[in-house]
Design a protein around this nucleic acid. Structure first.
Lengths: 231, 231
DNA sequence: TTGATTCCTAACTATGTTTTTAAGATGATG
DNA sequence: CATCATCTTAAAAACATAGTTAGGAATCAA
């Protein structure tokens, strides 16, 4: 957030884009616009906005899907706009990672106030940390494109392996317990199956460690869980 | 946030209190209620809620005033309820420190979803900030990564050793009796096996003391127990 | 249907941890 | 200063946890 926060507006209707352009690109914000979900994903990865305003009713993609895709790697606040005032949709969006939900028509004043709230929260959370990529020694994760590099080359991870690795990376340094990992990845039914972890950790290490017998990234805490090296 | 988050509901109308009591005090939340602003301020200070729901239209105090008073010292999210859908009031509340604003009538589902969003944000904030460590002379414990440093290097502790050390560290300076330590670590069956302690204390000292014959950290109180030096 | 991919299963090996045992050191007490 | 209880240390035995590997079921796209 160099100076003015950058807002990414994702909205297909020209009229509303015009309206919001007037309201937002004052002297307090910079504004980028995308008319489609596909373009929005690209722009979010490139421009690293400080906040996203997302209209749920895009023509090319399902809004909930798009929201979910964003939330796999994007940490910044997302304010959802929607023409429909349906309770279920609201709840799904909020639980799917949206920070706020506004039903059209809304006043610019309210939208601006809610943007200020979202940015206020975001500032408290991460002062400056760019979390769309993780880098540690020869290991690099690009969350936006879901790609992982290690030992000077790109490595291919299965969906499960990627999920495990990103869980560890998002809290790198911290020890994640067996039960936490099992619950997050396999659900609470499988909270006992620690051997799932063992085999997948072994596979992950084979892919991202120089010497999987002496792991430098994925460290095990006997009897407790695993931790991704940081620093 | 011990287990279930504690919500403080500030609302004068009995009907709405009843309604929200039903909606909120399910198995996910604990609920405290206050009918007046004065009582609310007292309760918030005493009970340390994880989230506040504040009706702006209280009889004894101006809502905006109350909100401002809360925000002078209260960090937790505040969700504002109001009967009126006035833009100015909304903006004032949001800029005054409220995290969300709901106009009556609203659905319980939406309220619950917005509570989840607020708690989610609050959790991200507090979990990022807690990088709690213990430090005493050349001994350092990082609780998040479960790492221990002594004599200028990282030392590897077994789960048992780590548990013993953190028990001592969390109450450093205080003497922990044999029976207390045995009960905490091995359970009350083994409350007699003081030699367990001796063996593991010896191992711990070998790892974290410069000279285990003259321990500077783990001090023994003959016939009583052990104590971790402080200051 | 085939082939590729991913994930689970299970048996096996390797490594680490805890308990047991026992001998030597220290400190308190009369 | 002799004795007893308490503590330290070391090392082996018993136990628990983690890593490796490969085969086969399930899924999915060509």
């Amino acid at each position: 957030m160099a100076n003015k926060p950058l807002i990414l507006l994702i909205e297909d209707e020209l009229a509303i884009r015009r309206f919001l352009r007037l309201a937002l690109s004052s002297d307090s914000f910079r504004l980028e616009e995308a008319e489609t979900g596909r373009k929005a994903l690209l722009m979010a990865a490139q421009e690293k906005p400080d906040l996203v305003i997302l209209d749920l009713g895009l023509p090319d993609m399902d809004g909930q899907d798009l929201l979910r895709q964003f939330r796999e790697w994007l940490q910044v606040p997302i304010i959802v706009l929607s023409a429909r005032d349906q309770e279920k949709q609201k709840i799904d969006a909020l639980d799917g990672g949206a920070d706020d939900y506004l039903t059209k028509p809304f006043s610019t004043g309210e939208l601006l106030a809610r943007i200020r709230v979202a940015l206020r929260n975001a500032n408290r959370i991460s002062s400056g940390a760019d979390s769309s990529t993780f880098e540690q020694g020869d290991l690099k994760i690009d969350f936006a494109s879901r790609r992982v590099f290690a030992c000077e080359t790109e490595v291919h991870l299965t969906p499960l392996e990627y999920k495990i690795l990103t869980l560890l990376a998002r809290q790198s340094g911290r020890v994640l317990t067996h039960s936490f990992l099992l619950k997050e990845i396999w659900g609470h039914h499988n909270i006992q199956e620690t051997h799932y972890l063992r085999v997948h950790m072994a596979n992950l290490r084979r892919k991202i460690e120089r010497d999987s017998a002496q792991p430098k990234h994925i460290l095990t805490e006997q009897g407790i869980g695993y931790r991704l090296a940081s620093e």
